[in-house]
Design a protein around this nucleic acid. Sequence first.
DNA 1: TGACTTTGTGCCGCTACTAAACAAACCCGG
DNA 2: CCGGGTTTGTTTAGTAGCGGCACAAAGTCA
Lengths: 410, 410
Amino acid sequence: MNGKADPRAEGEVTTRTRLERGRGALGPALELVHTGRAPTRAVLTAELGVTRATAGAVAAELEALGLIRIDAKPSAAAGSQGRPSHRLSVAEDGPVVLAAQVHADGFRAALVGLGGRIVATAPGCETVDADPAQVLGSVVEAGARLLRDTGRRCVGAGLAAPSAVAEPEGTALNPLHLAWPAGAQVRQIFTDCVREAKIEGPAFAANDVNLAALAEHRHGAGRGARDLLCVATGHRGVGGALVLDGRLHTGSSGLALEVGHLTVNPEGRPCHCGSRGCLDVETDPLAFLTEAGREPGPEGLLVQARALLRDAYGDPSVRAAAEALIDRLGLGLAGLVNILNPDRIILGGLHRALLEADPERLRAVVADRSLWGRSGGVPILACTLDHNSLVGAAELAWQPVLDDPLGALG
Amino acid sequence: MNGKADPRAEGEVTTRTRLERGRGALGPALELVHTGRAPTRAVLTAELGVTRATAGAVAAELEALGLIRIDAKPSAAAGSQGRPSHRLSVAEDGPVVLAAQVHADGFRAALVGLGGRIVATAPGCETVDADPAQVLGSVVEAGARLLRDTGRRCVGAGLAAPSAVAEPEGTALNPLHLAWPAGAQVRQIFTDCVREAKIEGPAFAANDVNLAALAEHRHGAGRGARDLLCVATGHRGVGGALVLDGRLHTGSSGLALEVGHLTVNPEGRPCHCGSRGCLDVETDPLAFLTEAGREPGPEGLLVQARALLRDAYGDPSVRAAAEALIDRLGLGLAGLVNILNPDRIILGGLHRALLEADPERLRAVVADRSLWGRSGGVPILACTLDHNSLVGAAELAWQPVLDDPLGALG
DNA sequence: TGACTTTGTGCCGCTACTAAACAAACCCGG
DNA sequence: CCGGGTTTGTTTAGTAGCGGCACAAAGTCA
């Protein structure tokens, strides 16, 4: 089988030589299958720029590692001649990563497989007014329970935190919404919890909007974009993220894309940052409800604002408030377009609802206020993934495997 | 000499096997020598993460290609034991690239070697109110003359244009300062001129501020920075540039970092972009002179403003004007810091002069208006290179050689 | 049924490395 | 002046990963 003498050729007889080859192209190949861009080995050959022999060997090795599946039967592609391909897909029973998300109202844990597929979710939990160690301990414990129940192999863990995460220390800088102290060592605490729960693999933590952007880039509305800008309003505050060449741009200390304090209304509301008219306070749910003349109800500002946009857009006061917010959001986005020149923009939270309420108006404002209008033609889309922060946290944990499958799993 | 039989071993006998090896590490190695980060083969070994054998072979091949020089005599490093290293340096008589720069007052041509060393310069020429084909024809002709006079081999050409250059078409979008039409095909015209002058190698064109940033990153004040932000005021208007991981970030259509229209003074001057108080009109030489109560003299606004800052900073009206501009510049830089979170900022033109007039004030404003102050501690430095746009244009032309020396020269 | 098209595999060889031993060139301490 | 110790460079042998090529497999089309 092996030609030259192999001193280890005793136990496993077959596919042994293959397991030794393909180190270089292995990562890129897995990434292509992971993001759904390589449905067959033929496509893999073209995308990697290697020969069919190499692509075949690489795919065989990824299958041997339990990461992808190669269909036994070829599936006939409709309307094409030639030998039909065997379909490549992510292994359904392969390893998973633990994804955790903490937000103002509680937390969530999930197991996520390759391809961004959520395998299992722990039921959402109510708000916890507890310190980081308690919250992260609970969410990791929920994840550990999932792992026990499903019996799957875990290769890493990722946390989506509701604050900027400073690099390289991994501290939470502005956890406004939580009973957490500023400067909490979230990455360290999360890592400790993961270790204590005897979960295998490295642990990572990053800002939730950043991770949402990463997830949308790999599996959602951002697929194929080279320079992707995401902006999202949550319950409170605006977050931004930038994905460049498939990698998150966090800046030198993890604080990039803090876009909440762009000035979009010089005569606007005072902001806690000391300035006035910031994107943060001019395009959030509270501003919208106030301008529409509504009292904040019991169901949460974001939910209420979304419902209003969806159900009462005919109401003149709602419409006027929406248009005012759209104009300010457009001004902010145009500023970002002039600086970053992305090839796609994705909006989440209330911003997404504003986009869907009147896409033409938003696009017109952005185009009008971008220099030369040219880059104002940038596509502006809504988020498409459910739980995109959670999936993004999983991406973080998958990254070492995508970079070097043999090294991370071997 | 060669061990196994080599069918081609007839003409060149020696260094033949070496010329066939080192393809992968060749580019990175050349880049290290080019940027002055690999003074010896020992350092090269460490920086590349390869064995001494590989580093030695790679260096030998780069020398054989005529790109670098390995000192014959080892140079004794003071106070260190062990065998002394042979010094590596860029080949002084190696190939060059043609660098061209066009600006409002004229143009300039130069031959630039590896390491950003300007080998020969054609005398600057006065303003040319001519169309792109004429201007670029003249500057390329000046370069061709330099090539003839020096007899050096040319491996490419780069142009620094005084306007944004759209990707991927290579058209000039806002050539305000020239008698050029908007949308002029500068890259195509430049390429045609280079071809017509029978200059070898590919031709490139990009915005001058972008290229200045690239040059500062490789050979100037930006060396070692990972995320480098450059902002510069010229005779008119503000330009910005961002270097990420050693590569220029041009955005999806070459329009990134058009920072001139950030709002830095809500009650400020009206700007031709339709807004008011833009960085562009609030921190340019004209604004400075006006606020200092000076009449524009005959010597050019930028020169006059610089002289005033240098020689008359004691004058209260000059000082007040400078501080007003510094505050506005700081506001703009803080906005960029919040978005990009660079690890270094470099200023050119009038902005550089403002920085040098009162560095503490500028740094304080940036730190104060950056979120959490943390990233406000970013170092703000002045440009250090003469003719940095020209050197940057050369970098553009060198890039293919740095990426694949064998492919580009073979 | 056979020509054509496309996909996948086995085999050989090459290129760019690594590993390890050796050699060279400095220091220093006696 | 001579023999360790230390760092640098070279030589040789070996190897991982990929390309090239011939061939086999599995479909479509006329």
